[in-house]
Design a binder for these strands. Structure first.
Length: 933
DNA sequence: GACATCACG
DNA sequence: GACGTACGTGATGTCC
């Protein structure tokens, strides 16, 4: 007979949710072999439980133990404040089914497993901790959740199991600046963005602690708020009193939750080997089952090594592709039949055929649909009659097509019906085409983006690649249908029967890919990435691209003329200096002139046997000779003219007078966008002459361009990911980060910093992001390699976290074949285990990818939220340049737009990721892009 | 179509 | 000890 919980007893309370989330994020996406059930978090959870129970806790060993879970999402706090935890992101879809399994796991280990409807786990923990304390026992709360810190003291401590660090009263004081009994007061003032506790605006933990320590407690502070000297603070406290008091009630844990068990029920129990083995075997945890069986001295059960059985539906590849089965839809009744099938299923694969690749110009020619593998059709709409070749007949509509308007009127309701999922491959293209005909397409799924979320870095995501790779089928090529070169025709000239075979197949392939990919997203644990970072970007980018940016043709045209004149002058001088005429634009001819004819030093032949005449080579030669300098100047002008001032003019849309770029969502492996036709992400800015091209990018009368860009976002992310305290502090203090690095590296006080020393530090900071090498840094800084290596060694010495980050990242990549961003984006590193020079590239790319990719994720999140945030304002988001967003805004709404857009950008990681470093955004405005930037 | 070059973050 | 090396893109012109 037990004597009951009391003195000498030690209750350990594990925060179940914390264990689950840590397990989920720490482990690769494991699935149960027999049926593909996601199981990674359960596996991690079991390992953590087992390690905890078996761990050596010394004098803190538990006599009583329980794992406490949350139950349901609605608690009594929601009744007080309906926005409580309202901005929490939905649970990842592959985690949801694992939650009940973690309860089962806890019970299988014979550990008490407790939860209570309407209460958070924290309240149960609070109640138990109070009871245990009153009974004279000790308590260890296994969690690092700061909301629980109010419970610490008088025999209650917290344990951060990850860091194996115990937190006592002093630990709480370190975190909050007050002792546990005043923690809720500080929290009430500071609020909590994660849980959406409002608090007092503008007051953080530091200020809150200061105030509480001055006045003793929250009530006194609020009663005597008039005495506060700072006017803003004083007013906030007086005006927001209700909100602050509500916040206190929200963070105050309930010590009197109605529990239907007692402390004695939590007494530590040995597991029942049979039950535990049964559970572990059912989960198919081979290693863990064996390890625990050994420990318990029992025979491990046999876990069958069966592959996943075939899905109940026939596999996509079981149904052969057969073009003769595709239907050509020529009348409303037939189209209706297909639409009805979409309503039966709830989905519809869609593909458009048009007269060209430019969505702003191309006209709709036909639409293909697919419902199930093999069941696809093509609706020809504006095919031209190629049969009669006379001058007038060739433009006539071909026979046997539905009127375009009629077909669109029938399809319009389906395409915008929220209950019908529209499936496409590169849906941004089709959505833009449809938008020009007044048809919205939503909601969507996109197989290209699904592939990107799962396989970035492994292969491309075009339909041909995906079809061959995942369906084992080579699609009908478009080339023979359209021809090439001068005799190429547009799709409207393709005979309808051939068009049907081609177009319907595309929809068929898309649907088959979707059926294959959809369940795989969960298994690869990229559902959240796909649903928050890829798919929602489609309408946002489509909108930006269709809106375009106004470009002043005359400005460009005048610059082109000026450049042509200058180039002609330079060309004459170059020929004069060379003693002969040659094509200055030919690196091969220039190389021969420089290194053979003039016999200059430093001629190095590349792998194609030609001299290298890159800017760095010419720059070196320019100190001694005139010709290379002239060539450099000529090249700069040539570049500006051909790529920018000439080419941009051809991209001005005659209807809109604006330039409409196209963003490739899957263009860069890291998550960055890529801009094409034209590329508006590389408009010159670094030289004065080039920057003037930005003067041609203008706003409509009455509007201005507004540019907002993240300041040093990659270095901030590096500071967070690699956990570099000095770097974090420097950002927190708002220091010049390169100067600070220089000061740290070269022992130069900040007030004695020279531009030259700072420049070196800047190069090193960037080098780190790029996966630094002594050689690369030496070349960049034009210093001896040994010296560069010395810098790097010193950098690692001063910031040891960097080395650790690099080593850990490479090790992770080698083990898993990919690296991840903070938001879960995976970037595959296929060459990481290769031999030879490939490996070096792969390693540097692996180091860079999480940093560049996280920054890309951040701005993607900002972009996705932006339209709603600026809704109602006379402001449009026009362009994205990696860390910059450019807006066109009515003059009188500039300040408001900046305020809102900056807020969205700076808080873009919330609530998914809490960065240790604040993100800051610089803003500019002006009549043109040169002024705004 | 490959290659070299150079524009951007 | 030698090998090659900063990360991520797109557009243009030359030359085969």
């Amino acid at each position: 007979m037990t004597t009951g919980f009391g003195k000498g007893c030690h209750l350990h309370l594990i925060d179940g949710s914390a264990f689950i989330f840590r397990a989920y994020h720490a482990l690769p996406p494991l699935t149960r072999k027999s049926d593909g059930l996601p199981i990674g978090a359960v596996s991690g959870f079991c390992n953590m439980l087992q390690r905890y129970v078996d761990g050596d806790h010394g004098p803190d060993a538990p006599t009583h133990l329980a794992v406490i879970f949350d139950k349901g999402s609605h608690t009594f706090r929601n009744d007080m404040y309906d926005l409580y935890k309202a901005n929490r992101e939905a649970m990842p879809e592959d985690l949801r089914p694992q939650i009940p399994l973690t309860r089962q796991a806890t019970e299988a280990f014979n550990i008490a497993c407790k939860e209570l409807e309407g209460y958070e786990a924290d309240d149960i923990i609070a109640t138990l901790a109070c009871q245990a304390r009153q009974a004279g026992g000790r308590v260890t709360i296994v969690s690092s959740d700061k909301d629980l810190m109010q419970l610490v003291g008088d025999g209650v401590e917290m344990l951060d199991a990850m860091k194996n660090k115990r937190i006592d009263r002093e630990g709480v004081f370190e975190k909050f600046g007050v002792y546990p009994e005043r923690v809720v007061d500080v929290q009430a003032l500071a609020g909590d963005s994660v849980d959406n506790v409002p608090g007092a605006p503008g007051i953080g933990i530091k200020t809150a602690a200061l105030l509480i320590n001055e006045f003793g407690d929250l009530e006194t502070l609020l009663d005597r708020a008039e005495e506060i000297k700072q006017p803003k603070r004083r007013e906030t406290l007086i005006e927001k009193r209700d909100q602050i008091e509500l916040s206190k009630r929200l963070v105050q844990l309930d010590c009197e939750t109605p529990l239907d068990f007692t402390l004695d029920d939590l007494e530590l129990r040995d597991p029942d080997p049979d039950k535990l083995m049964e559970f572990l075997a059912e989960m198919e945890f081979r290693t863990l089952t064996k390890r625990i069986a050994d420990k318990l001295g029992v025979e491990p059960p046999v876990i069958a090594d069966t592959p996943a059985p075939a899905a109940d539906e026939p596999q996509a590849e079981d149904i052969p592709f057969d073009a003769s089965k595709y239907e050509c839809v020529r009348d409303a009744a037939t189209l209706r039949k297909w639409i009805d099938q979409a309503y039966e299923r709830g989905w519809l694969a869609v593909d458009t055929e048009t007269t060209g690749l430019n969505e702003m110009i191309a006209d709709l020619v036909g639409i293909s649909l697919c419902i199930e593998p093999g069941a696809a059709c093509y609706v020809p709409l504006t095919h031209r009659d190629g049969a009669s070749d006379d001058l007038f007949g060739s433009d006539a509509l071909a026979e046997g097509q539905m009127p375009l308007d009629e077909a669109l009127q029938m399809l319009k309701p389906v395409l915008k019906d929220p209950s019908i999922l529209k499936i496409g491959q590169n849906m941004k293209y089709d959505a833009k085409i449809f938008a020009r005909y007044g048809v919205d397409v939503t909601p969507i799924d996109d197989t290209m983006l699904m592939s990107y979320a799962m396989h970035a870095g492994e292969h491309g995501h075009g339909m041909d690649t995906l079809s061959e790779r995942y369906l084992g089928h080579t699609p009908i090529p478009i080339k023979p249908l359209l021809g090439s070169g001068k005799s190429a025709i547009t799709f409207d000239k393709v005979p309808i029967d051939e068009a049907t075979a081609y177009a319907a197949e595309d929809a068929d392939i898309t649907l088959r890919l979707w059926k294959l990919f959809k369940p795989q997203l969960h298994r690869a644990q990229v559902t959240t990435v796909y649903e928050t970072l890829e798919r929602p970007l489609v309408p946002v980018l489509a909108e930006m691209e269709m809106h375009g940016i106004k470009v002043d043709r005359d400005v460009l045209s005048r610059m082109s003329n000026a450049f042509a004149q200058k180039m002609a002058g330079l060309e004459a001088e170059i020929h004069e200096l060379a003693g002969e005429t040659f094509n200055v634009g030919s690196p091969a001819q220039l190389g021969e002139i420089l290194f053979d004819k003039m016999s200059l030093e430093g001629g190095k032949k590349g792998k194609t046997g030609k001299y290298s005449t890159g800017a760095d080579v010419l720059e070196d030669l320019a100190t001694e000779h005139e010709l290379p300098r002239r060539v450099l100047d000529w090249r700069q002008l040539s570049k500006l003219k051909s790529t920018y001032t000439d080419a941009l003019q051809t991209h001005i849309n005659p209807d809109s007078g604006r330039v409409h770029t196209s963003y490739a969502i899957t263009g860069a492996n890291t998550g960055r966008l890529a801009s094409t036709d034209p590329n508006l992400q590389n408009i010159p800015v670094r030289t004065e002459e080039g920057r003037r091209i930005r003067e041609a990018f203008i706003a409509e009368p009455g509007n201005v361009l507004v540019s907002l860009d993240y300041s040093q976002i990659e270095l901030r992310i590096l500071a967070h990911i690699a956990d570099i305290p000095a770097l974090k502090q420097a950002f927190a203090d708002g220091l010049d980060i390169h100067a600070m690095t220089a000061s740290e590296m070269f022992d130069v006080p900040l007030d004695e910093m020279t531009p030259e020393i700072r420049r070196k530090a800047k190069a090193i900071n960037f080098g780190v992001i790029y996966g630094i090498s002594g050689f690369g840094l030496a070349r960049n800084l034009r210093i001896p390699r040994a010296e560069a290596q010395g810098f790097i060694d010193r950098y690692f010495e001063r910031f040891p976290g960097i080395r650790r980050y690099m080593d850990d990242t490479i090790a992770f990549a080698k083990e898993h074949g990919y690296v991840q961003t903070l938001f879960g984006r995976k970037i595959h590193t296929t060459e990481i285990n290769a031999k030879g020079p490939h490996a070096g590239f792969a390693r540097r790319a692996a180091i860079n990818a999480p940093i560049q990719g996280t920054a890309a994720d951040v701005i993607r999140r900002a972009m996705v939220r932006m339209p709603e945030a600026i809704d109602g304002l006379p402001a449009k988001m026009l362009l994205q340049v990696h860390d910059e967003l450019l807006f066109e805004v009515a003059e009188d709404a500039v300040e408001k737009t900046i305020e809102i857009a900056r807020d969205v950008m700076e808080n873009a990681p919330d609530p998914a990721v809490k960065l240790d470093v604040k993100l800051t955004v610089d803003a500019g405005k002006g009549a043109n892009w040169a002024e705004a930037h």
